[in-house]
Design a protein around this nucleic acid. Structure first.
Length: 255
DNA sequence: ATGGTCGATAGTCGA
C-alpha cells in the first residue's frame, strides 16, 4: 500500500501534474495540501476519470486539503474535532483498514509571532486528537506538510536556520510530543541519502542549488512500523515546468 | 543588501 503526501501550492495550477503523477505512481492514497480551492471548484471529476475517489475541505485563497484514494474513503473527518478553526488544514479517512490523517500544519511565519503561537496551539490540539484516533485505530498514518524539519539532518544549513521558523526547539518538541504517542517518521526507518529535502524555496534558485528542508512527513503507528517497506521523497515533480515548491513524500506498507 | 519568487488576487498577503 503506497501512501503519499504532496503540498501542491494551488491544485488549479498543478492539476495536470497531480493527475500525471497519480497515473505514473499509482498510490493507494494521496494527501494534498494547499489546494487553495473552494469545495465548489474542486476538480473531483478529473480524479474520478483516472480511477480515484476524493474527499476535500477547502476555502478561498488559502490552505485547503484533500484525500485521493483508489478504495473507499470511510469515516471522513474534516478539521480537528472540538478545535474551533476557520482554516482548512485537516482531513482524515479510513482506507483499506488504515486510518489516514492528512495535515497542513500552520507555517508560523516567525518564531515568537502571533502565527507562531497559533502553530503551537494548533499542534497541541491536533496531537490530542491523534491520540484519540490512535486509541481506535492500530493501523494509522499521519502525513502532510508539517512545516517542521525534525532535526538538523533535515536542513541544508542548520546554523543559518538555528531556532528559526520550521526548525525551532518549541516546534520540534511539539512534533516530538506527537511522535511520543507511538508514531514513527517512516523516512528515518531506513538508511537515507544525506541532504534529502522535500521543500525548496522558490526564491534564490534553491532547488537548482540543492538547498532545501525536509518538512513533508509520513508518520506511521507502531502496528505499521514493521510493515513499512520503503519511504522516500520523490524529487521528480520538483523538476516540472511550473512546479510546486514541495515534492511528494511517499511510504509503502505491506498489508 | 532582511532581498530573491510564486499563487491568489487586484494592492497586498502568505509561504
Amino acid at each position: 500500500m503506497k501512501i503519499a503526501s504532496w503540498n501542491v501550492n494551488s491544485l488549479k495550477v498543478r492539476l495536470d501534474q497531480v493527475v500525471a503523477w497519480l497515473e505514473h505512481q499509482q498510490p493507494a492514497v494521496l494527501g494534498l495540501q494547499e489546494t487553495k480551492l473552494v469545495d465548489e471548484k474542486f476538480p473531483a471529476e478529473a480524479f474520478n476519470e483516472v480511477g480515484y475517489q476524493v474527499i476535500f475541505s477547502g476555502q478561498p485563497t488559502y490552505n485547503g486539503v484533500a484525500l485521493i484514494a483508489r478504495s473507499e474513503l470511510a469515516d471522513p473527518v474534516m478539521g480537528i474535532p472540538g478545535f474551533e478553526d476557520d482554516q482548512k488544514r485537516v482531513i482524515a479517512a479510513t482506507v483499506d483498514g488504515v486510518r489516514v490523517i492528512n495535515l497542513y500544519v500552520v507555517n508560523g511565519q516567525e518564531v515568537g509571532s502571533e502565527k507562531f503561537d497559533y502553530k503551537l496551539r494548533w499542534l497541541d490540539a491536533v496531537t490530542a486528537w491523534v491520540e484519540d484516533e490512535l486509541s481506535r485505530h492500530q493501523r494509522l498514518v499521519v502525513m502532510g506538510d508539517f512545516n517542521i524539519a525534525p532535526d538538523d539532518r533535515d536542513v541544508y544549513d542548520p546554523e543559518a536556520w538555528h531556532e528559526k521558523i520550521l526548525c525551532s526547539t518549541p516546534e520540534r518538541e511539539a512534533l516530538g510530543r506527537m511522535l511520543d504517542l507511538g508514531l514513527h517518521d517512516s523516512f528515518r526507518l531506513f538508511d537515507q541519502p544525506e541532504k534529502t529535502w522535500s521543500w525548496w524555496d522558490y526564491r534564490a534558485a534553491m532547488f537548482r542549488r540543492g538547498l532545501g528542508l525536509r518538512i513533508d512527513l509520513v508518520l506511521c503507528s507502531e502496528a505499521l512500523k514493521g510493515r513499512c517497506s520503503t519511504s522516500y521523497i520523490d524529487k521528480e515533480p520538483r523538476r516540472n515546468e511550473r512546479p510546486s515548491d514541495h515534492a511528494p513524500a511517499v511510504a509503502e506498507f505491506t498489508l
